[in-house]
């Protein structure tokens, strides 16, 4: 195997909070658009777009699909006018560490755990990101660095919403 791409500096940030993001209040329109885009070209379930119908369900109103992302485009924290440290899903630069050079970054595995608390219009979601693991393998694309990113979400009432572990490959 080639020399490791994981430096001591990179090992030292494993488990540390890399970023905290706070969403804008989720709007019904955000939820509708997400559902329409996922189910396209078919009509999404009414629970995600029809307020009158959703009010008659056990949910009592519109809720977001489990995988809905309230952090797209813009967040309260970091705000749009703060300099972007990373143009990709994450970067060690967010903790002041120089990442290894790579030509591609891909998502290879996702592990989701959901609570029974759903995201609703008006919710403000806080996400805490950490790198939790590095490992390396030789693969079809050569020497590949795998990085596990953990992302834990809570709502404005500090209720846990979901935890996502994403494994990224860089080569």
């Amino acid at each position: 195997m080639k020399d490791s791409l994981v430096t001591d500096d990179m090992q030292n940030i494993v488990g540390k909070v890399m970023r905290e993001s706070v969403s804008h209040p989720v709007s019904t329109s955000d939820i509708r658009k997400w559902a329409i885009s996922v189910y396209y070209p078919e009509e999404p379930p009414r629970l995600f777009w029809d307020e009158e119908y959703a009010a008659t369900t056990t949910h009592g109103g519109i809720v977001a699909p489990e995988e809905f992302n309230p952090f797209a485009w813009s967040t309260q924290k970091p705000s749009l006018d703060e300099p972007k440290v990373s143009g990709t899903a994450f970067s060690e630069r967010e903790l002041g560490i120089e990442p290894p050079k790579y030509k591609a970054i891909l998502l290879s595995e996702i592990r989701e755990n959901y609570s029974d608390v759903r995201i609703r219009p008006g919710d403000v979601i806080r996400a805490t990101h950490r790198i939790t693991n590095y490992f390396e393998r030789e693969g079809r694309m050569g020497h590949m660095l795998y990085t596990t990113l953990s992302n834990e979400w809570h709502n404005q009432s500090e209720q846990w919403i979901r935890t996502t572990e994403s494994v990224f490959i860089r080569y």
């Binding site: 996922v38 189910y39 379930p45 629970l47 369900t57 056990t58 949910h59 699909p65 489990e66 995988e67 992302n69 891909l106 998502l107 290879s108 595995e109 996702i110 592990r111 989701e112 755990n113 959901y114 029974d116």
Partner: peptide
């Protein structure tokens, strides 16, 4: 996009379970 593929898995489960069901966990390897 990988998140779209994950959404398809979620949609598959939701369509089958209906609104009463809840997804506890979902893992996928691409």
């Amino acid at each position: 996009m990988a998140p779209l593929q994950m959404s398809f898995f979620n949609a598959l489960l939701r369509t089958w379970m209906g609104e009463q069901g809840r997804i506890i966990s979902l893992s996928a390897k691409l």
